[in-house]
Amino acid sequence: MIASIFASRILNDLLGGITAGVVIGLVALSLVLIWQSTHVLNFAQGAMAMFATYIGMTQLDHHLNYWVCALISVAAGFVLGGATERVLVRPLYGKADINPIVVMVGFLSLLEAIAAAIWSGTPRFIDPPFSSIFFQSDGAPTGLSPFALFQIIAAISVMAATALLFRFTKLGLQLRASALAPEVARLLGVRVNRLLTLGWALSTAVGAVAAVIISTGDTGLYPANMETVFIAGFIAAAIGGLESPGGALLAGVVIGVVMQFVNDYFNSGYAGFVGVILLIVSLLIRPQGLFTKNAQRRV
């Protein structure tokens, strides 16, 4: 009896952790996409995704369907990402590391403040399109709800689609070439500048998918609602290796599960610190990231 309650609690945490983890993985993927193409760590990524989600989800006020609003959010992310690359990031290529960091940190606080100015800081709750009541198994909740299942499937689909795009399409080949060897790509007629813009647009659209998922349900949509998951996503990306999308996803799930267990068995106040410690330990073991193949990385 006791054992079964215990087992059910572990299962609950595991499933809850995976649900949170795939979203962390999405955020990490979005960071990796930008890092690979432009070697900028986008500190404003969470805020940009949040802002795009506001643009889409406030259309619920005009009686638009949830899915239409979600689509608008992702499209807004795409446009915002591309515009950001053109206006803010392009002048920074080739500058010292600190310049893009400072600009993106400034953009982060600017976007959060603008969102609060337009839509107020009070959370806005968005009804999930599927029930968020846990499935039952033998009369006990499983830690997995229809909405959570949707969340997992959506996140994995986005990641798979991104991987396919990069691996098997002409566009993907050009995107990878622009990231790996921009000068060679230009000599072959690839319009590298456009592709960098597209890279930012795609990445921010992926981030917006994560933000839509996070804002739906009990967390709510508010200007700072991506901060925690952004940090977790960064940690996942750094642990998995900023060069490795698959590694980022896996690390995201691991972090999601670990934090869920910390929340449940200790205290949610420690989750952030556990994340930092995970990051430190993994960097000490393997500074190039746990899942990168090539040993050399410019850190």
Binding site: A177, L180, V184, V190
Partner: peptide, 29 residues
């Protein structure tokens, strides 16, 4: 490049992370 001036740079500029065929495809795109 698109006008038909092909430049094979010093050091060859082969993308090591690409397969032979991916390198060639890139040239044709």
């Amino acid at each position: 490049a698109r006008m038909g001036v092909a430049h094979v740079p010093e050091g060859r500029g082969v993308i090591a992370e690409f397969t032979v065929e991916e390198n060639l495809r890139l040239g044709a795109l």
